[in-house]
Design a protein around this nucleic acid. Structure first.
Length: 576
RNA sequence: GCGCUUGUAGCUCAACUGGAUAGAGCGCCUGACUUCGGAUCAGGAGGUUCUGGGUUCGACUCCUAGCAGGCGCACCA
């Protein structure tokens, strides 16, 4: 139940009727009309700009139009307690208490209050993480992983069908280097040969020793004398071990993918040849040369004739190579094939979550998806910006070369899954984020996770003191409550939850959820503290009972916190 | 050189997809526990939304030209 949508519809119906009665003229397009949350300084519950939008077609000032419309609303809506016209031409509505009572009655036992059940259910594919299977996840992967997971949760909450997918880049040179690294670690263990630490192509990390041990133990039949004779099998085993590590990391972050798509499979199934043929037929592919870019590095430029995709047709700044000079496919080519397999699976919308360092890739991949599907909006890419780690006020640098980067495991064991998720989500995904270890560990107001959880725990404690459970269904027969403005202030906030979910989903901006929950928690804490001075603001009566209006109040607040925290993927403990 | 992205209070960030006098937290200052959980609350100070132009009833938001930071820019993945 989104009261803002309900009222927008109501107002549009009213002005359409007024138009038929020749009271006002309507513009061709009504899409500029909004129903919004008014700034808090106005003592009202809802506001609309309708008069401003209708001002021009009616040749009247917004105030004059507003006067006509307020009269119409007054005559037709029994829920309005007060209606005011404000300066530029806003119409501000204030509801009667009965409106809020009915509102609570509607949402009290709604399990997914806030989810949008009206819109069509769509099939989404969300691809995220897709880190190279050459070792455990580090902190850099973390934000994108959480972002993708929560976007999926948001879509699911809104009744969409979501498939979460991980693209495994188990093909190409890096995997060969990785497999060789495993091989040398195996020889180190079996034959006491020193690992060639100076070879810069190899992966030095200690986790390779464990991978090597596992492979030796589980494959006693294999002869490790010659790399070439076992390279194929060893690649498979090494990638498997790597994925096992990554799944373990993801699991500790509370993330599980539905599907792991393998690049090798795509190449071996000739998907690349097929998709390139298709693009050729549609004239999106040609044999040509990429020109050197303007600037300093043009001196060493070597022009090569190769198979190119015309991404410039779609706004990219240069065409992109599909084939290397040795005729093997580029990474881009197999990714094109991969995206073609996504299209073949008939999803309505594809979403890719990328790290900031891959933002330059977006144009070419959206271009090719448009070329293949004819739909410009088929693929949406979201970028997760860098996380700056800070400890004791000092930035924390990682070095991949030395292999001394901070892993997801380090992070989780240090600050925990919930705090990591909440903090990583609390900022818009396209701004850099400071992640302060010291603060995130603090159990105080500095840490918004605990602030919101504490709200839930406080509500739970009321139920506990009454020998009830916060999870009980609420049965109230009479909704004739006498709430004051202090409670209604929170109901207003509650009425805004569906709007928050709606915007967060439409824009794929999950940070709006923790921001909203923080605000709701803040208003609740504020109310709670009123109880110190004012006995009527307390929940539990002297005879250890609770009034129906108070239990309804607690229930709707706790429901939203529970739902919101579920979307974020963090716990709501009843005791802290 | 080009592309993408960010720029809002001393610091970290919001601002509901163009709305009203731009909001929170931290830090600073003052106050509240014989209270249903003080991991909390009440109050104060703090702003030319990077700059210049434009679009309109109305701009932090859109367009344009700059400035500053970040990321990226061949057959790596």
């Amino acid at each position: 139940m989104n009261i803002f949508e309900t009222y927008l519809d109501k107002i549009i119906d009213l002005i359409k009727k007024a138009n038929q009665d020749n009271l006002i003229t309507l513009p061709e397009n009504l899409s500029g009309i909004n129903v919004d949350i008014p700034p808090s300084k106005f003592n009202c519950d809802m506001s609309t700009n309708v008069a401003m939008v209708l001002s021009k077609p009616n040749n009247k000032s917004p105030i004059e139009v507003a006067e006509i419309i307020t009269n119409i609303i007054k005559e037709n809506d029994e829920n309005i307690d007060d209606i005011k016209i404000e300066k530029p031409g806003f119409i501000n509505l204030k509801f009667k208490k009965i409106f809020w009572n009915n509102f609570l009655k509607t949402i009290i036992n709604q399990k997914n209050y806030g989810s949008n059940t009206l819109k069509d259910s769509k099939k989404y594919l969300v691809e995220f993480v897709s880190a190279n299977p050459t070792g455990p996840l580090h902190v850099g992967h973390c934000r994108g992983a959480i972002l993708g997971d929560v976007i999926s949760n948001l879509l699911t909450f809104n009744n969409h069908k979501v498939t979460k997918e991980y693209y495994v880049n188990d093909y190409g040179n890096q995997i060969i280097h990785f497999t060789k690294s495993v091989y040398f670690r195996i020889r180190e263990i079996l034959f006491k040969e020193k690992f060639p630490i100076d070879n810069k192509d190899l992966y030095p990390g200690d986790y390779l020793v464990d991978i090597a041990k596992n492979i030796i133990e589980q494959n006693k039949g294999i002869n490790f004398d010659n790399f070439d004779s076992i390279s194929k099998d060893l690649t498979k085993l090494s990638v498997q071990e790597s994925i096992k590590l990554i799944k373990f990391n993801l699991n500790n972050l509370g993330i599980s993918h539905d599907n792991f798509a393998s690049e090798t499979d795509i190449v071996l199934n000739n998907e690349v040849d097929q998709v390139v043929d298709k693009l050729k037929k549609d004239q999106f592919v040609y044999l040509g040369k990429i020109k050197a870019p303007e600037g300093e590095d043009s001196k060493n430029w070597v022009e090569r004739e190769q198979l190119l995709f015309k991404s410039t047709d779609f706004g990219d700044d240069k065409d992109r190579a599909l084939q290397k000079t040795d005729k093997s496919w580029t990474y881009f080519a197999s990714d094109v094939a991969y995206h073609n397999t996504k299209l073949k699976r008939n999803f309505d919308v594809l979403i890719n979550i990328l790290g900031a360092d891959h933002a330059g890739y977006i144009k070419r991949i959206t271009s090719v998806v448009e070329a293949l599907s004819g739909d410009k909006n088929k693929l949406i890419c979201k970028v997760s910006q860098l996380v700056k780690l800070i400890k004791d006020g000092q930035p924390f640098k990682m070095s991949k070369r030395k292999g001394d980067y901070i892993t997801v495991e380090d992070l989780i064991s240090e600050v925990g899954k919930d705090a990591t998720r909440f903090i990583m989500l609390s900022r818009s995904n396209d701004v850099e984020l400071d992640f302060d270890f010291t603060k995130v560990k603090e159990k105080s107001k500095d840490n918004p996770l605990y602030y919101v959880q504490y709200c839930y725990a406080r509500i739970s404690s009321v139920f506990r003191n009454l020998d009830k459970s916060i999870n009980d269904k609420i049965e109230v027969s009479n909704y004739d409550f006498k709430y004051t403005d202090d409670e209604i202030k929170i109901f207003k906030k509650i009425s805004q939850w569906p709007k928050c979910v709606d915007v967060a989903t439409a824009k794929l901006e999950p940070h709006r959820i923790p921001v909203y929950l923080y605000e709701l928690a803040s208003e609740f804490h504020s109310y709670w503290n009123m109880g110190r001075a004012d006995v009527t603001k307390r929940f539990i009566e002297k005879d250890n009972t609770i009034k129906d209006e108070k239990i309804v109040f607690l229930k709707v607040v706790s429901n939203i916190i529970k739902n919101g925290m579920n979307i974020i993927g963090v716990e709501t403990p009843e005791k802290m």
